[in-house]
Design a protein around this nucleic acid. Structure first.
Lengths: 336, 336
DNA sequence: CAAAAGAGATAAACCGTTTTCTCTACATTC
DNA sequence: GAATGTAGAGAAAACGGTTTATCTCTTTTG
């Protein structure tokens, strides 16, 4: 049931070299009817070339590694789907790794990817402050593109990321132009670059519109529904006046809307809410949540193309691509 | 930066065979201080054995393929997470494939897995009626375990599946014992084995409790929120009396609860609802949905262990494992 | 004390490909 | 009609490992 190239060669009465030429469509140096005979034989016997043997000589595996921090977080399956699809279109198969948000695991996984001789890696790192994973890849000369979360340090390679500042800037400006003057910010964990960048957009929009920052309305917490619930609880307890909320992510926004409704605050009549990310849950939630949506498909496509480009040498390995998110207005903002 | 086993051998002043022995911990035939010297060298130079070359001679890649129909469906990321984790614990790396619910794509992906010489495949097929994928794998002698959806035909190999009938049986019995006599069934697409099996549990529970099947209350539709919405719409329009709903899956249940609440039916006071699957969304939805939960982690673990067992020859390749789901009562059923 | 056993190590064959030379035979050019 | 070009094909050397058979000492055994 298992044939090798030598079997085919012997059965066809030619040399291995000739069979190899036919398999790889290097038509130079093989006559048409020899070719046909070999092709027929291959088909009849169901011969499959051994890609391992091939890889070892051409030193290329047509394989890439994809490392994500948490596959259960709904953002990542969509990203994975896009990357797997585009990679497959370009002839690459992907090794999927889940680091469980642990940098040590991430390093170990990447080592095993290197051992498997992947041609390149797409990395959504689990520790922004720590570029050890990128360092490893660099050390072994393996192309890498970072995605979503981008390690800050210099020796990190190419990247595809979202314009976090621009996204919250647009959302904040939208709310300010609608007349809001007391917009609460329910940000993510302090210290994360996304949290900081999103805060900047919020701040800059206020500055550009000439509105003072309502510093009593700034909160930070977990990127989760619970985080949204508890921050909103705090917000309500301060008894500060506010007429809109900008959330650091969609799950925070959902928790926030829940808490507001429970407290008898009507959404969006008494308070408008905008999230960030554009996860499916935001659409399905009742009421559907307005959000700054990351075009995940686009991120996946750019990341894959970038990596393929770097691997083929046609793109420099320190290119950074920034993608603009878009404001999607649903039912937690008023119709205008 | 890239060393081969010959480099190490030369630098250590020994033969390749000796280096190979110390790499593979075959201590027989290599002296302690030779071993130490080689180990130090390997460490210093960051030498990584080429797994491709190794695989080709031992004809084993320590690699498995995982094929799912739709990675965005929240059930699968959890399954993938579990499988990737257990596989990695046993020294296997996994190729992830997403068939987009298309059997032709599925076949193509599996072919490329075979070309990559995976040691085995875990398959959640996209077409139950079609066992062509299993057939391919069989033909090339690659162990396979089917999971979740199981191709019916005989030449399909091992499997891990859920006791669908048992799950709905337990849920239906629970409702019947609580006094309900008019339980609507909002099933999945007709023709799917899960739909049929879940219907059987519903039917058998009625029979065993001596209650007539309310045949006017049976509906079939998509496994989705929209499906739940529309089936509930139909149900309400019939004006038949009903006091509980058994849904074919959680998204149907969510759609159903939405529709009921919109129609002014109080849940669970006027109508109790139970879903199936135990996806996270059911827990997060407001109100949290009672459900027949599939222990996804357990499925993942059993499937991985089963495959590893088959690959090592210690388990027969036609073993079928059935896992019992468990009834989780939340807020769409009354407290008792 | 000779024979057998065992420890440490090597040479060489092999795994299944690709690729570079090289060779032959025939067609084209001047 | 010799020189050149070209198409079709094969032999053999890689690629980076593992494994088997073998070889040389030293140690044990009877």
């Amino acid at each position: 049931m298992k044939y090798t190239i030598s079997d085919i060669a012997r059965l066809a009465g030619v040399s291995k070299a000739t069979v190899s030429r036919v398999i790889n469509n290097k038509d130079r140096g093989v006559g048409p009817e020899t070719k046909a005979r070999i092709l027929r034989l291959i088909d009849e016997l169901g011969y499959l070339p051994n890609t391992l043997a091939r890889s070892i000589v051409v030193s290329q595996t047509k394989t890439i590694g994809l490392v994500v921090p948490d596959i259960v977080n709904p953002f990542f399956p969509q990203l994975i789907q896009g990357i797997v699809r585009h990679a497959s279109q370009q002839g690459y198969t992907v090794f999927l790794c889940n680091s469980d948000n642990d940098i040590a695991t991430e390093n170990k996984l990447v080592m095993s990817l290197i051992e498997k001789r992947v041609d390149g890696v797409i990395l959504a790192t689990s520790a922004e402050g720590d570029d050890s994973t990128c360092f490893l890849l660099k050390h072994y000369g393996i192309p890498v593109v970072q995605v979503d979360r981008v390690a800050a340090r210099a020796n990190a390679g190419a990247s595809v990321s979202i314009d976090n500042r621009g996204g919250t800037y647009a959302a904040t400006r939208y709310l300010l132009q609608a007349g809001h003057r007391r917009i609460a910010l329910l940000g993510g964990p302090k210290g994360l670059s996304t949290t900081t960048q999103r805060w900047r957009g919020y701040r800059d929009a206020h500055a550009d519109q000439g509105v003072d920052l309502p510093s009593a309305l700034l909160f930070y917490g977990e990127y989760s529904i619970e985080g949204g619930l508890s921050m909103t609880g705090e917000l309500l307890r301060t008894e500060e006046e506010f007429t809109a909320v900008l959330a650091g992510c969609d799950t925070i926004a959902i928790g926030c809307v829940k808490a507001l409704l429970n407290a008898g605050v009507r959404v969006p009549e008494q308070c408008e809410v905008i999230g960030f990310d554009g996860i499916e849950m935001a659409e399905i939630f009742d009421p559907p949540v307005s959000t700054v949506a990351q075009p995940i498909g686009e991120i996946a496509e750019e990341a894959t193309n970038l990596l393929v480009g770097i691997m083929s040498g046609s793109i420099s390995s320190d290119r950074h691509i920034v993608i603009e998110p878009s404001l999607i207005l649903r039912r937690t903002t008023r119709m205008r």
